[in-house]
């Protein structure tokens, strides 16, 4: 009986740790996305300030390739959209992981209690 409860407790703890790890990963990803969004918005602002006569180059590997201003603007807009959707996805993930963490926590407390009960019972019977 006691072994059974202990096993349950351990697997639940492992699950909880895994969820916690995923949660931290998701939060870190959210932060990276936030700074990427910031950077792209800055670039967008700069592109909007440019005159049609200004040349735009895109760094691809070690070389600069000339690009049309409209094309560059489109690219940045697309990227901002992509990052926004990624942020939404990551935030949904964070909330769902948060919920999961809570349920695992509750389960852990439950298992811990039944483990202690089983322990005291076996102590008495001895």
């Amino acid at each position: 009986m006691i072994e059974e409860v202990r096993k349950k407790l351990e697997t639940e703890l492992d699950k909880f740790k895994q969820v916690q790890k995923d949660y931290h990963k998701a939060v870190a990803r959210r932060q990276i996305l936030g700074s990427q969004l910031n950077e792209n918005n800055v670039v967008k602002e700069e592109l909007d300030l440019l005159n049609p006569g200004n040349e735009i180059y895109k760094l691809i590997g070690p070389i600069l390739i000339k690009q049309e201003l409209i094309e560059a603007k489109e690219n940045v807009n697309k990227r901002v959209e992509f990052i926004l959707s990624e942020i939404k996805r990551t935030e949904d993930l964070i909330t769902s992981l948060d919920k999961k963490q809570e349920t695992h926590k509750e389960n852990l407390v439950k298992f811990q209690q039944s483990f202690e009960q089983a322990q005291s019972k076996s102590m008495k019977s001895n």
Partner: peptide
């Protein structure tokens, strides 16, 4: 001058524009 405006984009600007930037 060519200025790195971020995320791999470079813009050619005149000196006064660059200073503004």
């Amino acid at each position: 001058v060519l200025i790195d405006i971020g995320t791999g984009y470079f813009a050619e600007k005149t000196i006064s524009e660059a200073k503004e930037y």
